[in-house]
Write a protein that binds this DNA or RNA. Structure first.
Lengths: 135, 135
DNA sequence: TATTGTTATACTCTATAACTATA
DNA sequence: TATAGTTATAGAGTATAACAATA
C-alpha cells in the first residue's frame, strides 16, 4: 500500500472511530445518529421540512417521520410559515435546546481522549490539515 | 471555540464527509454501510458469528439477519466449525471477494479528491497524525 | 449450567407512490 | 401545473426475549 492509500485508510478508520463515539453519545440519550444531526442542524436554523431534508440528504417523507418522533419526545416543534401556507418550519423546543447543549459537551468530552494523544502543537497542525480537506 | 474544540469539530465534519462517500459507494452496489463493513472484515477473516458480531458491535441476532441477506445475494456463506458443533463460520464467496475488491478500488477513487487537496508532504503528515490518533 | 446461533417480535430509518392543500 | 408536506406501505437494520443444540 502506498503512502496516499495508507493515509486514506487511516482517514476511514478514524471516521469509523469518531462515528462510533457519536453514536454512543446519541444512544445514551436514546437518539439515533440522524436524530443527533437533526438537533445539531436545528441549533442554528429553523428550516422548512424540505430544507431539513436537503441538509440531511433524505427524502421529505423520511424527515416527516423523524420530526414526528422527535416532536413526540418534546424536542422539536413544527410552526407554520408566514409567507407560504404549505410550508412548515421545524425548530428546537427549550428541552431540545437543553439536550443539544448537553450533547455538545458530552461529545466533546468523549472525543477529547482521541486528540489528547497528540501534543498541543500537533493537535493544531491536525486541525489545519483537516480544514484544508474540508474546503 | 478554542483550538482543541475546533480540531474536534473538524474531525467530526471530516468523518461525516468520509462516511457519506462510503455510504454512496456502498449504495451503488445496493449495500448498506454495515454490509460494507461485513465485506471488509471478511476479506481478511473467517470469524464465527459471535466474533463477527463483536467486531461490528452488534447483537448476534442482528448479525444473523445481516448474514442471511448477504448470503441470499451470494456474497457470503456459512460453514460449520470443526471443533464446536454449535459454532458457524462466515466467509466470502468468490463473488463476495470480487465485490469487495471492486469496492476497495471505488472507495479509494471516491476519497482521493479529498486528500488530493493537500500536497504530498502534507498528505503524509496527515497520515502520521491520524496513525497516532488510532494508536 | 453456560454458550452459540436462530427465531419471533417490535421499533426506527429509509424510499416510493399516492394523496391534500396551496402556489 | 408545480410544490410542500403527509400518509401508506415495504424492506433493511437493530435490540430484547425465548428457544434448541451443544459444550
Amino acid at each position: 500500500m502506498d503512502a496516499e492509500a495508507e493515509t486514506l485508510d487511516r482517514l476511514v478508520q478514524t471516521s469509523f472511530t469518531v462515528m462510533a463515539v457519536l453514536s454512543q453519545a446519541a444512544a445514551a440519550h436514546d437518539l439515533s445518529l440522524t436524530q443527533l444531526r437533526v438537533l445539531a442542524i436545528l441549533r442554528d436554523h429553523q428550516p422548512k421540512m424540505a430544507e431539513l431534508a436537503a441538509h440531511l440528504g433524505l427524502d421529505r417523507s423520511s424527515v416527516s417521520g423523524l420530526v414526528d418522533r422527535s416532536a413526540k419526545r418534546g424536542l422539536v416543534r413544527r410552526t407554520a410559515s408566514k409567507d407560504d401556507a404549505r410550508a412548515v418550519h421545524v425548530s428546537l423546543t427549550p428541552a431540545g435546546h437543553r439536550l443539544a447543549a448537553t450533547l455538545t459537551v458530552e461529545i466533546a468530552d468523549a472525543l477529547a481522549p482521541l486528540t489528547a494523544k497528540l501534543p498541543p502543537a500537533e493537535q493544531k497542525r491536525l486541525g489545519i490539515l483537516l480544514a484544508k480537506l474540508l474546503d
